[in-house]
Nucleic acid binder design. Sequence first.
DNA 1: TGTACATCAGTGAACGCGCGTTCACTGATGTAC
DNA 2: TGTACATCAGTGAACGCGCGTTCACTGATGTAC
Lengths: 218, 218
Amino acid sequence: MATAKQQETPRARARQRVLADIDAEARRQLARDGAAALSLRSVARELGMVSSGIYRYVASRDDLLTRLIMSAYEDLGAAIEKATATVAGVPATMWVAGGNAVRSWAKRRPHEYALVYGSPVPGYVAPQDTVGSALRVYRALAAPLRTAAGPDVVPSGPLAELGLAVVDEDEVHTILATVMALFGMVGFELFGHTKGVIDDHDDFFVGRLLVQAEALNL
Amino acid sequence: MATAKQQETPRARARQRVLADIDAEARRQLARDGAAALSLRSVARELGMVSSGIYRYVASRDDLLTRLIMSAYEDLGAAIEKATATVAGVPATMWVAGGNAVRSWAKRRPHEYALVYGSPVPGYVAPQDTVGSALRVYRALAAPLRTAAGPDVVPSGPLAELGLAVVDEDEVHTILATVMALFGMVGFELFGHTKGVIDDHDDFFVGRLLVQAEALNL
DNA sequence: TGTACATCAGTGAACGCGCGTTCACTGATGTAC
DNA sequence: TGTACATCAGTGAACGCGCGTTCACTGATGTAC
């Protein structure tokens, strides 16, 4: 199983390029029309390829969706990491930065957000591959908690995967519920449920993030 | 514009019956396959009607979606009202009952929940008609707050439509954020984001509802 | 009570569309000797 | 360095599917005199 990448042949390089084009075009279509409208045929068409040709690169429509889901998670995770890193050291500020990153990413890429945190795509079942990428988001959000806990903590308990050592069940639940509340707020705004109720969303959101930081003892 | 319903003619009664059948069948299909799979043709087919015949009853697919959305809101609103009414008088208990009603309704009707609180249906824009129905849900959830405030309160401020008189902006935001947190938790569980993280969802959920009730001063 | 006309539910054919996926194929690229 | 064979990207046609919506129509029901 030695997948030697040494000696990159022209054909292999071309393949990588086409694969990247496919991903890019799929993302573009997802961003424009949403997951439901995404089709292998239109991706192939846009790439100037005959519709069946795309099967040399992608096993099925579901396979392409999986790639999109994973890259959405990775992209969001990276955005949070970046936002958090710029204010590293001050837990409460980190939390606010992370939360704001989620919100602004969601507004920048509403269809991608909908794909991963909205209604499941009918008929699609996420393969195991996606959970790692999904985890990156939570790990990024947990950065302020890690900072607050200090560098000497040995991860343990139900949140060990996030680099946390929390044993008290109520505390675990508080953390989880806070994350869910964050996504609840983002989803409500993005999906238009706050129209006419909240006028200054920025203000509302930052205010709530601060309250959350307090609840998390940051 | 005197829409006299007096003198119900057989034809009119038949029309009502067919319309009800259409709604029922559409709901059945929505429940089974989700909104994306809902088609006028299959509804007509199932009713033993030729596909074009359904246009005597429904203006378009979007029109049918609107009916489904409104009835979903009404149904959820009614479920919350019922749950809250059975424990009327004790605000905190009412809140827990209302929250549990949202969750159990969502688990009973996942596709309906996804239709109204999940990703927007691509290409569909909700007409103004739906906001009244949507409001019923929030009004039902606000019952414990009304009870806590007492019967003499004259509704005013941004939440007047919910029968509340709250002027303090932070308090308004707390109420809104709590509702969003509720839907965030329900959505996360329903859409499978808590797999492997939370083992006892009932326990988690009730615990959080109690915390929320406290935050709402109930 | 009876007739003449208007309304309306439901039919059947059609338009034009797009989809996922399979298959046998050509011709270029890569590899082993 | 040159040849023979294997791999693989991309083609083009096809299968079978389902959709929303329009239109001219028939025949039954409802209404006005």
